[in-house]
Design a protein around this nucleic acid. Structure first.
Lengths: 252, 252
DNA sequence: CGGGCCAGAATACGGTGTACGGAGAAACCG
DNA sequence: CGGTTTCTCCGTACACCGTATTCTGGCCCG
């Protein structure tokens, strides 16, 4: 499983690819049998199906029926491909139109939309986006999310901070969801099996006198959250707390 | 840059290593020139210095002056080594004693302690811990953090949820910090250089009429947050909002 | 003393991204 | 029309990765 970084390589080339504003199609030479959109779509499909760890140039090329080096005719490198993938899936957000309602409803919708996107594309949350691909998907997302907190009396800086906060919350929470799913997929061992295998040995090393609060809270939380599917419960619980806190900022 | 997963391999072996409760040292055979602690320390030092992407068995072995396969005498595999590394650094938390004060002060201290740990060990936040290494470091952390919200009137489940929420918030925010630092380290291009290279092309594709809110908010937030070092500001701002929200739950 | 145990390491294999250069197709231009 | 240029595609190679397997040599124990 790999974490990829955005924002590498030549900015001009990357932005041209993101906005599909590269030079006009060449006039000479053989007609291409492949284009950027198809490469990106194949890569997204592979990552969706098998996770970011399965995303190799060889695998993407194989799924397109071409040689690995062929991909480099269309994208400068793997990192740039990942930029393109991320921007492509972010473009799915708010495709049905902007979020509506009062500020709380709008922020709730923003959080849920992002959550659902990362559920559809688990790999997307793994991408270190310190230098986001400034493509149409990213810009549309940022625009719609800023609008969700527009007209609330927040300053521009506060608006940006709230949007960043909600995004960070969702990303962090959905990571928990995927960490569990990823561990299962990569090991082929379900959580129940893992715990069944681990618990006997854990019981041997765990000293309730040394960790009294864990001994009290752990079994109760474990029993209840196991049933309620912990990362989702965490999301719902956390979103309420976060919105309450943001509400104090907006409403006072 | 790799994201590693915790919780793989044989649970018995992993737990024995985590708690250093493996069978007594063998009596026969050559005296080991190496032990688990030294392997873990070398791996932590390498990851601290160069990030998780530089963490290969060959590199760790090289820093210890041994052949790569030698490491496998001491740890079953790379995944288990990563478990050990994570547990080792988490053991640094609250080493000076538990957090004190009222519930808000305690949670603030928990958040800050975690933030500072991840600043010291940036790689630690990259580890998908869906199946946490249940070693002394992880257990001590969980114990202290549960104590920070003990006696507040929250149920055991709520305690666990609040601890998870705060941890997720810190992890998500510090990732932003590291995403930026990581992009710079891997590309050798500072953020200013990157923006200087990107901005001219971005200006060409960016249409203010299509993204009016971004056009209004972006420059203001960018100017102010650039100076205030955005991920830290996000952390401070977000922590206040989050604590306000948790406060409504605790105090009503 | 000799056999067995054990740490260490050499070798090899299957996997990764991509540099480099060649082959062949298609367009351009004199 | 033919030579040159442009362009897509891809084979080969290299440096890197984790680790399976087997061999070597040191040390303990009966």
């Amino acid at each position: 499983m790999a974490t990829e970084h955005t924002g590498t390589g030549d900015p001009a080339r990357s932005l041209a690819l993101l906005w599909r504003s590269a030079a006009p199609a060449p006039r000479r030479g053989p007609r291409p049998g492949l284009d950027v959109d198809r490469v990106v779509a194949a890569a997204v499909a592979l990552a969706d199906a098998e996770g970011l760890g399965a995303l190799s140039m060889r695998r993407v090329a194989g799924s397109l029926g071409v040689a690995p080096m062929t991909l480099y005719t269309h994208v400068p490198g793997k990192a740039e491909l990942v930029d393109l993938m991320l921007d492509a899936v972010l473009a799915e957000l708010y495709a049905d139109g902007p979020v509506t309602g009062d500020w709380r409803q709008r922020l709730t919708a923003v959080a849920r939309a992002n959550w659902e996107l990362f559920v559809r594309h688990p790999w997307a949350v793994r991408i270190g986006a310190g230098r986001p691909p400034l493509g149409p998907g990213v810009l549309a997302k940022y625009e719609q999310e800023l609008r969700a907190v527009d007209g609330t009396g927040l300053t521009e800086v506060q608006m940006d901070l709230v949007v960043t906060l909600v995004n960070g919350f969702v990303a962090g929470t959905v990571r928990g969801l995927h960490d569990r799913a990823g561990a299962e997929r990569e090991s082929g061992v379900t959580e129940e099996q893992w715990w069944a295998a681990t618990a006997p040995y854990f019981a041997r090393v765990f000293d309730a006198d040394r960790y009294p609060t864990v001994a009290r809270v752990g079994p109760v939380a474990g029993a209840e959250l196991q049933a309620a599917y912990d990362p989702v419960r965490t999301f719902e619980f956390g979103l309420e707390r976060l919105l309450d806190g943001i509400g104090l900022l907006i409403v006072g």
